[in-house]
């Protein structure tokens, strides 16, 4: 398999990670489209230096989170390199299916979007059921620090949920 095909296969397998991170860090659809593109560019640029020491998903989380957090700083540059293509790389097929969890999911997304950049990253990894060790590895934190941060952020989220549900 040539590098481009391998890269696209990795992208296909992990597209959900990119979408969720972009969705959590960018509320505007246009910005989100740009962020997805920026993440894919950075993944491609780093693909040759991927050593295989970490899992593809860990590698993608690190890059995608770093790009998303840095996104606001690259705004000017991003405009300069804006892509001429208007379509989206990641597209949601509209199924119009609403169930009883849809509202709660929207609430959870809203509360996550309101978190500060680093809290958001930790919470996303927690919700993805990454172990404390893996979260620590992606974030560059000790496991005990991860545990205390998660407890604090979770507490805040639960409080927000209960205040809305009352």
């Amino acid at each position: 398999m040539n590098p481009t095909d391998l890269f696209l296969a990795v992208l296909q397998a992990n597209k959900g990670i990119i979408y969720k991170i972009a969705h959590s860090y960018c509320q505007e659809a246009e910005d989100r489209k740009d962020l997805v593109q920026e993440i894919i560019v950075q993944l491609w640029r780093s693909f040759n230096s991927y050593t295989g020491e970490a899992k593809y998903s860990t590698w993608i989380y690190r890059i995608a989170l770093n790009v998303a957090i840095s996104f606001h700083r690259k705004r000017t540059r991003r405009k300069q390199v804006s892509n001429p293509l208007s379509e989206e790389i990641l597209q949601l097929v509209d199924t119009n299916v609403k169930d009883d969890t849809s509202e709660d999911i929207s609430l959870l997304q809203r509360f996550i979007a309101e978190l500060r950049e680093l809290d958001k990253a930790v919470m996303l990894l927690y919700l993805e059921e990454k172990s404390y060790r893996e979260i620590g590895n992606i974030m560059g934190l000790s496991e005990t620090n991860v545990a205390t941060k998660i407890a604090r952020i979770k507490g805040g989220l639960k409080q927000k949920f209960s205040s809305v549900k009352k």
Binding site: L11, Q37, I40, L85, Q91, V93, T95
Partner: peptide, 21 residues
């Protein structure tokens, strides 16, 4: 839900990556 509804535009991913690099 994402798994069921999220599509990767393979052609764009290839093109855009080249352009932006």
């Amino acid at each position: 839900k994402l798994e069921e509804t999220l599509l990767l535009n393979r052609e764009l991913a290839t093109d855009i990556t080249r352009i932006k690099v």
